[in-house]
């Protein structure tokens, strides 16, 4: 039997008077996974997190928490909200001590007071701020503040943890702690992490799945290989011409001008062209290679610049270098058209 997703969105729409519209037809977040949502400023990332964490009411549509409808601002939504936690991009600490800030959520949940001290100690240990209990929040540096906010989230052991742009304006040490936490959080307690970021490298590095928001719409994969073109028909086949020399085979019923996006992880990089069922195969030159942990990002110019993600082991086996001639191959079904 298929597991019920921890969060599910159905035809979610949020409209603002200024004209911005966020539209998420259908998306599911599975339990225990890490999701990254990328997108430019103003794409609706924060709005989406506010909606998912039931802090804002959608104009239309529904959110389901473990299969149960979760309407924002209903009395039962409080119980669901207590199972989730959002760390804001610009978080707020109450004007009191670190200890009282961390225990605020525990008090709300009526956790026994004699457990507070141990829980706070553990949470502070996880963010490397041991002994900070009595420190007034106003005397903390920005990095320390961010870590206290994280400790305040961890102490509640939420089933879903939302992090809004967690890597913006933080020092190196806090970034390391945060990355370590996101990667290792499942070993502490079962949780699903959904974070927004501008940083695509970081999104791929830390998450199990990347979504992108573009003009209020959620797209699977990143927007790294994002192109615009007209749909052309040739018999049963459909192509999108993205440059004078490059036509991408797609599967779509749409017509006219469209955006297409090819997730970098769905592109196969090879030194020689090979026969396969994939309809798109192009030869080009390596423009750039970025090493980041176990993932290597390769930019290939094939009439348009494509980003391809490969593992470090593949990179080493293939002895790739800038200027090499390589082939990129991907299926028509991997191309997202919107």
């Amino acid at each position: 039997m298929q597991k019920v997703p921890v969060l599910k969105v159905k035809n979610l729409v949020k409209e603002y008077r200024e004209g911005f519209k966020l539209e998420i037809p259908d998306v599911e977040f599975a339990e225990g996974k890490i999701y990254a949502i990328t997108g430019p400023n103003g794409a609706g990332k924060t709005t989406l997190l506010n909606l998912l964490s039931l802090l804002e009411k959608p104009t239309r549509g529904e959110i389901f928490f473990r299969g149960r409808k979760a309407p924002a601002s209903s009395p039962e939504s409080i119980h669901i909200r207590r199972k989730m936690h959002l760390v804001m991009e610009n978080p707020y600490l109450f004007h009191t001590t670190v200890y009282r800030n961390i225990t605020a959520g525990l008090k709300i949940r009526n956790v026994e007071k004699n457990r507070f001290s141990k829980l706070v100690k553990e949470a502070l240990h996880r963010v490397s701020l041991e002994g900070f209990e009595a420190r007034p929040a106003s005397t903390l540096s920005r990095g320390e503040m961010q870590r206290v906010v994280l400790a305040r989230a961890l102490v509640l052991q939420p089933e879903v943890l939302f992090l809004d742009e967690p890597f913006v304006n933080i020092d190196r040490r806090t970034r390391e702690i945060l990355e370590e936490l996101i990667r290792g959080i499942k070993s502490l307690f079962p949780t699903t992490v959904i974070f927004t970021t501008h940083d695509l490298k970081c999104a791929y590095h830390l998450s199990d799945k990347v979504y992108s928001l573009l003009e209020g719409r959620l797209v699977s994969g990143s927007l790294e290989n994002l192109f615009t073109g007209e749909v052309e028909k040739k018999g049963q086949d459909r192509f999108v011409k993205i440059s004078p020399s490059l036509k991408i085979s797609v599967v779509t019923l749409k017509e006219g001008k469209v955006h297409i996006c090819i997730p970098p992880e769905d592109i196969v990089l090879s030194q020689e062209a090979f026969h396969s069922s994939a309809r798109n195969s192009f030869r080009g030159i390596i423009k750039n290679i970025y090493l980041s942990g176990e993932v290597v990002k390769v930019s290939v110019e094939v009439g348009a610049e494509f980003t391809v993600l490969i593992t470090r082991a593949s990179y080493q086996n293939m002895h790739l270098a800038v200027g090499d001639s390589v082939c990129i191959t991907f299926k028509s079904t991997a191309v997202q058209v919107f």
Binding site: R81, L86, M88, Y92, F94, R152
Partner: peptide
Amino acid sequence: DARAKKTAMILGAT
């Protein structure tokens, strides 16, 4: 600060 109210909501306060 407007964030104080939002923080209370995030923490699950009635």
